[in-house]
């Protein structure tokens, strides 16, 4: 069997499916529990539906962003491996980074003829060991860190703890935005600035239209992308 046939074989699809199935099943179980808990927290049906719709719409845009990388990954490591690794932790660029690291060990370049069974196997191990790092840390720390908030609430001023959580979130999104625009290059600053302005305008203009607000992040993102492309493109 040749290399391309092996990396896209049914057997590889099957062994790659387990992690995706675990991830989606966990989300199904958590979703049911969270919906029930939300009712007990006094969140009504309309608000739950609005939350679900807006989360789904918001997730579409960024899910598209690795699509181009996805195609090059499919060419290098095959469709099943790409599918599994993009459905789990590690962004597309991280997986590509790992593959070029492990191929480097063999003196082979990813995507060339020389990238064969051995380099692919090294890549499989590299991606598995890399993802294991995150999974293991969350496995070890996840349950230990819960309850920290309650403890802090009883120890410190709850008004401050609320602010603290908000501050951590602002910091995190500042990091995510800052990471994109830190080069201060126009192709990064422009989409960010345009989308930001559109978001503010929509937030103000659509204040009364709850349903349309759910779309605001998606619209702001699209306007930012397309206007930048129209101005800078070609």
């Amino acid at each position: 069997m040749n290399f391309q046939a092996i990396i896209n074989s049914p057997g590889i699809w099957i062994v790659s499916a387990f992690l995706v199935i675990i991830s989606v099943s966990q989300a199904v179980v958590f979703m049911r529990a969270a919906l029930k808990e939300a009712t007990e927290c006094g969140i009504n049906k309309e608000k739950k539906a609005a939350a679900i719709r807006s989360a789904c719409i918001t997730a579409i845009g960024p899910s598209l962003s690795p699509v181009i990388t996805l195609l090059s990954l499919v060419a290098v490591v095959g469709a099943p491996t790409t599918w599994m690794r993009l459905c789990d932790v590690g962004a597309a660029r991280t997986e590509l980074g790992v593959i070029s690291l492990t191929s480097g060990m063999l003196g082979v370049e990813a995507g060339t003829e020389a990238f064969g069974m051995q380099a692919w196997t090294y890549g499989l191990w590299g991606m598995a060991l890399n993802n294991f790092g995150w999974l293991f840390v969350v496995f070890i720390l996840g349950h230990r860190m819960s309850g920290v908030v309650e403890k802090m609430n009883s120890k410190y001023d709850p008004a401050w703890i609320k602010k603290l959580m908000a501050g951590a979130t602002v910091g995190l999104f500042a990091y995510l935005l800052g990471n994109q625009i830190q080069s201060l290059a126009t192709p990064k600053l422009m989409p960010a600035a345009i989308a930001a302005v559109v978001m503010i305008v929509l937030g103000t203009a659509l204040k009364k239209y709850q349903r349309l607000q759910e779309l605001s992040l998606g619209i702001a993102m699209l306007v930012g992308m397309f206007v930048t492309q129209a101005v800078l493109g070609a």
């Binding site: 845009g61 960024p62 598209l64 962003s65 699509v67 181009i68 908000a166 979130t169 602002v170 999104f173 500042a174 995510l176 935005l177 994109q180 625009i181 192709p187 990064k188 600053l189 422009m190 989409p191 960010a192 600035a193 345009i194 989308a195 930001a196 559109v198 978001m199 503010i200 937030g203 605001s216 992040l217 702001a220 993102m221 699209l222 306007v223 930012g224 992308m225 397309f226 930048t228 492309q229 129209a230 493109g233």
Partner: peptide
């Protein structure tokens, strides 16, 4: 190609929009 090349602007646009949305509260 207009659409596929605009994909490279997805993340800065997304984080720009979401950051102002969160930051405008304070």
């Amino acid at each position: 190609p207009f659409v596929t090349s605009s994909f490279s602007y997805i993340l800065p646009a997304l984080f720009g929009a979401i950051y102002v949305d969160i930051a405008r509260k304070d």
